[in-house]
Design a protein around this nucleic acid. Structure first.
Length: 376
RNA sequence: GGGAAGGUUCCAGAGUGGCUAAAUGGGGCAGACUGUAAAUCUGUUGGCGACGCCUUCGCUGGUUCGAAUCCAGCCCUUCCCA
């Protein structure tokens, strides 16, 4: 992997850059659609490429390990071939599942014992086997095995958890250096900053992560319920310590406004389930604001879904029709909403990049945040 | 013509003397969702000058301190026999 910076905003820390992987180039700042089980829910690869203009998508180690299983992915020749995406991918390590499946797992120094959410079977994830698993899945960017702490989180818990994440990081790095990608192309490894909402812990964690000299760095454990202002402050703080010449990935963020704010703080990469999940639940993000498509007010609105939108669904279908599909629980509703929301997210980060290069990012961002947070 | 069952709040359907503005499901309306156990979950769903009052369980009348619930008559629906 290789990262170059094309432009830096003069009135904030926003940067425009380029990540090169063996599966292609990624222009930053970038939003990465989440495809947990190897598919971005309700969206075809062709739509992801041609309409959404996604450049990289996520997969999840925990989910793919459980199903279809590593033997299948290995026989397919890696995840990018298996799902026909054939472009850059990133796998999350399962660290988020340590948080989200809190009642189905036990944390030890060695690793995490999970109960499968699918069939209840018992599995252990260790830093070593999580690296091995991600070598077999074959994403271009693979993540450290960490514990994503919940919010609120006691200081002592956060400190111990961070120390465990750091110990696991050393083991991940060692294993990563000892192994190779299963399919001949290169993979890169990103460590993850933890430390909950405590600045001293975040500082220690950022320094630990920076000392690994990896090709990119991630910030985890945020947007788990803490006040948004805290999230911004901690992101800003972490960005001030993490290396400037490496991509910074803020995991799990966020709303369109969150993304714009965090770009200005120096974040280059984002992922979030919000455009797809909220889309499936009837929420549309547009450049003019947010719409709940199930609301009665769209019943007789025969204007396009989003007249400023960039994907074919935006002008082909009307609000009244999309509302009808949601109310009737038609599968097409989920597809339209997902394609729309992802297209909007990719458009938004693309615009951010252009404005960073043009030099007017800050004022554009301020204006844009007002619009995207509007409730329509 | 004879026999049987039944008519409940938007719908289906519980309730068979006070705890019932009435279970439950559906539908309607609104909200939530941030490295996806999520095409999910939550709230609400007679009216009002609401910690109380008014109207409502086919219609009319009656019994009772009190009725959706008991009694009488009437109207209607479904099924069976002729």
């Amino acid at each position: 992997m290789n990262f170059t910076i094309d432009a830096i905003s003069k009135d904030c820390n926003a940067r425009a850059g380029k990540i090169k992987t063996d599966h292609g180039e990624i222009l930053t700042p970038i939003f990465m659609p989440v495809g947990t089980v190897g598919s971005v829910k309700a969206v075809h690869c062709s739509e992801l490429k041609e309409e959404v203009k996604a450049q990289i998508i996520l997969g999840n180690t925990y989910h793919l390990y459980l199903r279809p299983g590593l033997d299948i992915i290995e026989k397919a020749g890696g995840i990018q071939k298996f799902n026909s995406w054939n472009k850059p991918m990133l796998t999350d390590s399962g660290g988020y599942q340590v948080y989200s499946l809190g009642h189905n797992r036990k944390i030890t120094d060695e690793g995490v014992i999970f109960r499968s959410h699918i069939d209840g079977s018992k599995h252990i994830f260790t830093p070593e086997n999580v690296i091995d698993t991600q070598r077999i899945i074959g994403a271009d960017i693979i993540m450290a095995f960490d514990e994503c702490t919940p919010y609120p989180c006691e200081y002592n818990y956060a400190k111990n958890s961070m120390n465990l994440t750091h110990a696991w990081l050393d083991r991940c790095v060692k294993r990563f250096k000892e192994t190779e990608c299963s399919y001949g192309y290169s993979q890169t490894f990103f460590p993850i900053v933890q430390g909950s909402v405590y600045k001293d812990l975040r500082k220690e964690s950022c320094e630990k992560i920076a000392s690994q000299e990896c090709e990119g760095n991630a910030i985890g454990g945020l947007s788990v319920g803490e006040p948004i202002e805290d999230m911004y402050e901690l992101t800003d703080f972490c960005c001030s310590i993490l290396p400037k010449d490496k991509p910074r990935y803020l995991m799990g963020v966020g709303t369109p406004a969150n993304i714009l704010e965090c770009i200005s703080l120096g974040i280059d990469m984002f992922d979030c389930v919000m455009p797809t999940r909220n889309g499936r639940n009837g929420m549309l993000f547009t450049s003019e604001g947010i719409m709940n498509m199930r609301n009665e007010k769209w019943k007789n609105d025969f204007t396009p879904i989003d007249s400023n939108g960039t994907s074919f669904v935006d002008t082909l279908y009307t609000k009244a029709y999309l509302r009808h599909l949601f109310v009737a629980k038609e599968i097409l509703a989920l597809q339209i909403a997902s394609v729309h929301n992802l297209s909007f997210y990719l458009w938004l980060v693309g615009q951010a990049r252009e404005h960073i290069i043009q030099g007017d990012f800050h004022s554009w961002k301020t204006m844009m945040i007002k619009k995207v947070t509007n409730r329509l």
